[in-house]
């Protein structure tokens, strides 16, 4: 079993999918982007990132292809599949609903 991740699994999956919405990207890039976008609040642990990527690939939400990275090295690029896009849309709505609700309760 994966170790206790810093982030809830579903949240990490959602962030990965969201990151990939901009286009194909390798694992390193995904972790950098999440860190950047969260303004260094969220540090993605590799021990959670790669299992999550492979799990999403198994589920058919993302697919992978080997390609050249910006510094001309072979890297594994992930991109959303049709299912992945649909899943992302659903989950984003879900997330918004829940986070709004949670925010209300806490503000309550």
């Amino acid at each position: 079993m994966p170790p206790k991740s810093d982030l809830l699994q579903g949240t990490l999956d959602l962030m990965i999918l969201r990151t990939l919405q901009r286009g194909p990207m390798h694992g390193w890039g995904i972790s950098q982007r999440i860190q950047q976008l969260s303004e260094d609040v969220l540090q993605v642990n590799q021990g959670s990132l790669y299992p999550a990527l492979h799990r999403l690939e198994q589920q058919g939400l993302i697919e992978a292809e080997w390609g050249s990275s910006e510094n001309n090295r072979q890297a594994k690029f992930y991109q959303l599949t049709r299912d992945g896009r649909k899943h992302l849309a659903d989950e984003t709505r879900n997330w918004e609903r829940i986070s709004t609700a949670v925010a209300r309760v806490i503000a309550g």
């Binding site: 079993m1 994966p2 021990g47 790669y50 299992p51 492979h54 799990r55």
Partner: peptide, 16 residues
């Protein structure tokens, strides 16, 4: 910074 490579690999395999 990366941590134990083998542990990461083991977790990936678990997902398979």
């Amino acid at each position: 910074a990366f941590g134990a490579v083998d542990a990461v690999k083991a977790h990936v395999r678990d997902t398979w």
